[in-house]
Design a protein around this nucleic acid. Structure first.
Lengths: 323, 323
DNA sequence: AAGGTTCCCGTGAACGTTATCGTCAGCTGG
DNA sequence: CCAGCTGACGATAACGTTCACGGGAACCTT
């Protein structure tokens, strides 16, 4: 019978089997330090043979850094995030990094707590959709580990950013509405802290009344009722996100009016269900998977010692039935 | 100026400040071992005061166990999973556990690799939607760490399970269809390995032709066309999941026929978009968030030393417009 | 009053890596 | 022929916790 007791194979076992020292095994694995090609291959072979797996704990203990990155976001159940997360997971896996996820519900306390947990865990880096945390706290976090924030200006020179160009996206939406003959536009803004940009972009690009509502389907229904109640001349509606837009769709249909005949609606994000509602939603598409991938690419370059980068992703308009 | 160099506060610093030994501090933190209430409070106070955070690495090194659980699932972007993931995150956070997510695309190799990564990382336990891995490998994983699998029979006495009662759910669906006067039923089965149960449940509960298609909206559209093409007398369709059902909805509408007048459709899962499509989907609701919560609850009990449990969650029918 | 328990607490060792420094052989240049 | 250099490797010392002991004081028990 084989020895089936599950005793851990350590670096010393490999060293002994390969007839070298511990340190040489370490060098062979990590590719740093002087080592001849011959012994390196020999060591790698015996690692393979013994099925040696370095202890993440021991390694982390010396280096104070784990092979783990953190992903903090408001709510994975919000349809915008799963696709982003998938992009993050895939790109991280390709780099050999595990991803731990923190949901914050966009609460400042929860975001701060997530930050603490991340540094305590010794994560190699972090990717975050921080919606409530102030710049000072964010900058402080960025000083503790490589950090890239999404859809938010950099609070500090050391933190990298990836953003989708909301101004351009908004122009795409309002221009499309205008080209369909809508002269009086309104906006359904999401009641989200620290996100004044979208509203500003709308006011700058088109102008018109703005109603704020929770960024949900129910919020969109209520918001549209309020918007049309106060401004009956509005025929084109631009929503902060698709959830609000879908809620708006339901509200105008419930009021017995036609989409896009009586009022046209364009959303933002192009979540999966946007194509499935009736009428299918015209919306500004942002490549969520690509956003996720880019986020870890930028983080990876930071991990490799490069300075903080700032990328911006271009949105594009997807014309479907609602406008 | 305060000493701002970021040197780590160690357990020895706390011990010295509190006037006790290292070990006593450890005891105060972990609540195991004999310690008087008085010194325990004193130690806890100085921990607070010094803002001491134990090193996860050092701790893991001794205990060979991290404060981390793994969640393995096919694809976080599949609308079924975000809600259960959220349940997992919330319940895990309440227990002070971080969650690392592995996407497998239901590929056997990826599932095996995830398992390896999980034990290498020294996770405290794992929760998994394994769809391709064979029972032997799953049992082997269960021997390495506390494991709870979802929607699958236990491969071994040591692994816990949480399942949704698909037979009951299917009965709910077919009975409803029957009560609406549909005598000839058909099923859109998902082309998913290791999931013959749903089809069996349908055949047992109602019987009728079964067409297999990828469990996506596109698959549903194609599948329904095939089903009705081959069996024109089918008026009630039961789908493996909501994505297929939504695809079916689109196909019958595209064929110029009415839902539910000409053909009725009932889905399974009740994902968010089920309520948003037109007509809103009648479907079997499974509480995904609760599933996630239950998964970690069961894992938690396992972590606490209890034997493996087996829970099953009851589905319920949500009647909306499509049947 | 002696011996046994129980309650607290401290001491040393160990977990498995990597950083730092040292050593040794071989080679180069003057 | 020797000083100096370089390439390849090894020995030692940490990193910060918890485990396995052990020991002293206080409290019972007879």
């Amino acid at each position: 019978m084989e020895a089936s007791r599950s005793v851990r194979v350590t670096i010393d076992d490999v060293a002994k089997a390969a007839g070298v020292s511990r340190q040489t095994v370490s060098r062979a694995m990590n590719g740093k330090g002087d080592i001849s090609e011959a012994t390196r291959r020999k060591v790698l072979a015996t690692i393979e043979e013994l099925d040696y797996r370095p202890s993440a704990f021991a390694r982390g203990m010396r280096t104070q850094r784990a092979g783990t990155v953190a992903l903090v976001l408001p709510d994975i159940a919000n349809p915008f995030f799963p696709a982003v997360a998938r992009g993050v997971f895939d790109a991280a896996a390709a780099r050999g990094l595990a991803v731990v996820v923190h949901n914050t519900d966009a609460d400042a306390g929860a975001e701060a707590e997530a930050g603490r947990a991340i540094v305590d865990a010794g994560a190699a880096g972090a990717i975050g959709f921080f919606e409530a945390l102030d710049d000072a706290a964010l900058a402080a976090l960025g000083r503790r580990l490589p950090l890239v924030v999404a859809d938010r200006p950099a609070p500090d020179a050391s933190v990298a950013t990836v953003r989708t160009d909301f101004l351009t996206g908004t122009r795409l939406a309002t221009d499309h509405l205008a080209s369909r003959g809508h002269v009086r536009l309104g906006m359904l803004d999401g009641a989200v802290e620290n996100k004044p940009e979208r509203r500003r972009a709308f006011l700058e690009a088109a102008g018109g009344p703005v109603v704020t509502a929770p960024p949900t389907v129910a919020g969109g229904t209520a918001g549209l009722r309020e918007l049309l109640g106060r401004h009956a001349d509005v025929t084109g509606v631009f929503a902060f996100n698709d959830l609000l837009a879908i809620g708006a769709l339901r509200a105008v249909k419930a009021a017995g009016r036609q989409v896009p005949g009586d009022v046209a609606v364009v959303g933002y994000d192009d979540i999966t269900m946007a194509a499935l509602v009736d009428p299918p939603l015209t919306t500004v598409h942002t490549d969520k998977y690509e956003l996720g991938r880019t986020l870890v690419e930028v983080l990876g370059r930071r991990l490799d010692g490069h300075p903080a980068e700032h990328r911006t992703l271009a949105p594009r308009l997807v014309v479907r039935g609602s406008a």
